[in-house]
Design a binder for these strands. Structure first.
Lengths: 205, 205
DNA sequence: TAATTACGATACTATTCAGTTTCGAAACTG
DNA sequence: CAGTTTCGAAACTGAATAGTATCGTAATTA
């Protein structure tokens, strides 16, 4: 895996490089990627949004592709931020409570980014997998943990297909925002749980 | 929905337009889209692959975007076998029977095309929605019809959330092939039905 | 202060590509 | 045949845009 931090000679002379600008650039790149995709994003846009110049970008990254690569890695890294899972004693409320802190709207942008990078991903498969794992992995882990707890409580049977259920949640969220353009909101999520997922998990023969 | 067939004056004089070339162009466009995506595809590529000229393309379509739109619509239409829906008297087998003609050979390439169409979607939202509806619409219609039949038979309750179930099917299929790269096979589909969807539909309170 | 490096801004180069035009040949009609 | 339209091929135009170079200014250090 390539590292975000570069080996910097870090000169002792002259004006210091403003490293807060690094992340501002990555943030701007992600915002533009979410809206326009890899081909739609131009280096001038990134420079303009950060009120900097193209020279400043190319002083940090040798090419657009490598800037985008680091932006994706940065985006994935900055996503994990949950220390304690909800524990309401009830699977439905646990899952719903997870939506709020994990904030579907927040990861909405990541999904939109992923959706618009098809051509870039086919050329950089490895990075695509890293980013994809970074985005979906933690979320799946959380959901799986909540469902395993529900099994321990006897709320759902032990042979319930938890992996499939986790995938359904992620698939629905992705599908709505990628192909439909509309976010999969809290109400939709509740309907999915109440109408399909929870009855399905509980009454599996 | 816009129609694939254009209003053609269809001149009575001069050399006739070769309409077999129309579909050869659309087919070539789909092949290139599946490989390179919207931005990666150039009109020169399409002309070269069909051994024709760009003028021939622009005699038929006013822009690349509209050629791609028609290619997408054509792609979705070309796999539809709407004549006779399966009728096994059993929702599970009905849904599974639909997978064979629909999901196997054709829709894998279709989804690969969709996966690489991110930038197109952002630049031509309107057209992209038409194409997306053309791809997912018929499929949803089939599934909905099969489920409504199941309600009439009393196999699932009348208040079952059929729309949500249809979306889950499509979402899972898309998610697997777009972000995972691997198609959602018949076995996976059967597991989704048996472990989640059918129990969910039947036992909804 | 003098040297050095980063900064934002702008201009420049080279390439790619959508869309247009032109052209000679082929096909069709009356 | 004469007129008309399509065909494939190629050249051309104009707009983007990745990447480079330049420049005056700001920050930092010795």
């Amino acid at each position: 895996m390539s590292e975000l931090k570069k080996a910097k000679p870090e000169n002792t002379l002259g004006r210091k490089r403003d490293h807060t600008l690094d992340t501002r650039i990555l943030e701007a790149a992600i915002e533009i990627l979410a809206e326009l995709g890899f081909d739609g994003m131009t280096m001038d846009m990134v420079a303009a949004r950060t009120k900097s110049g193209k020279a400043t970008l190319y002083r940090r990254w040798p090419s657009k592709a490598e800037l985008v690569r680091d932006a994706l890695i940065w985006m994935s890294q900055s996503s994990v931020e949950l220390e304690h899972l909800p524990d309401t004693g009830n699977l439905r409320d646990d899952l719903l409570a997870l939506v709020k802190p994990y904030s579907l709207e927040f990861s909405e942008r990541k999904l939109r980014v992923l959706a618009k990078l098809g051509s870039f991903f086919s050329e950089h498969r490895k990075i695509a997998e890293e980013a994809s794992a970074g985005i979906f992995g933690p979320w799946t882990d959380f959901n799986r943990t909540l469902m395993q707890r529900a099994i321990k409580r006897g709320e759902i049977p032990a042979q319930a297909d938890i992996e499939m259920a986790c995938q359904v949640i992620i698939a629905m969220t992705s599908y709505r925002s990628i192909t439909q353009g509309q976010p999969f909101g809290r109400t939709d999520y509740a309907a999915l749980l109440d109408h399909i997922l929870l009855p399905g998990l509980k009454h599996q023969q």
